[in-house]
């Protein structure tokens, strides 16, 4: 990770350097939709695991609304302004969730009772 993508820093033009001049526009909506898609991905994984192991599936399914709520929290943290609330916590929570879900899936894959031929 020693190279660079470009020679210009991505800081925006000098004209919009003041925070009040920075309008994220639809970026906020796109980010909100990205959080929703991520929550749906958790729900889809939970559905697959539910077919194999009910408890693990329910745990993963329960994460889905929490992820969706995290996306909403990120929006409400900046009342009265269009600036995003930058916090490591929710990003870190997503990472930890995926690692935990991966471990659960690994346990289910190795120890769970398989349903061979279900995709035949």
């Amino acid at each position: 990770m020693t190279g660079t993508r470009g020679s210009q820093p991505p800081g925006g033009s000098p004209d919009d350097s003041e925070p009040e001049e920075r309008q994220p526009g639809l970026a906020r909506e796109r980010t909100s939709l990205a959080w929703t898609r991520t929550a749906i991905s958790f729900a889809a994984l939970g559905g697959v695991v539910l077919k194999v192991n009910v408890v693990s599936g329910l745990i993963i399914l329960a994460i889905a609304p929490l992820v969706w709520q995290l996306g909403r929290v990120s929006r409400s943290n900046s009342p009265g302004t269009d600036l995003p609330a930058v916090g490591t916590t929710r990003i870190r929570l997503i990472t930890v969730s995926i690692v935990v879900v991966s471990l659960l899936s690994l346990i289910v894959a190795l120890l769970g009772k398989s349903a061979p031929g279900a995709l035949r």
């Binding site: 925006g12 994220p24 970026a27 898609r37 697959v48 990472t95 879900v101």
Partner: peptide, 29 residues
Amino acid sequence: EPDPRFTFANERTFLAWSRTALALVVAGL
């Protein structure tokens, strides 16, 4: 503080990779 649009873009990129990670887990399972 960077331009919020870049902050949002960075966050969306992270979320996109997270969904890719979840897709790998689903496929493996």
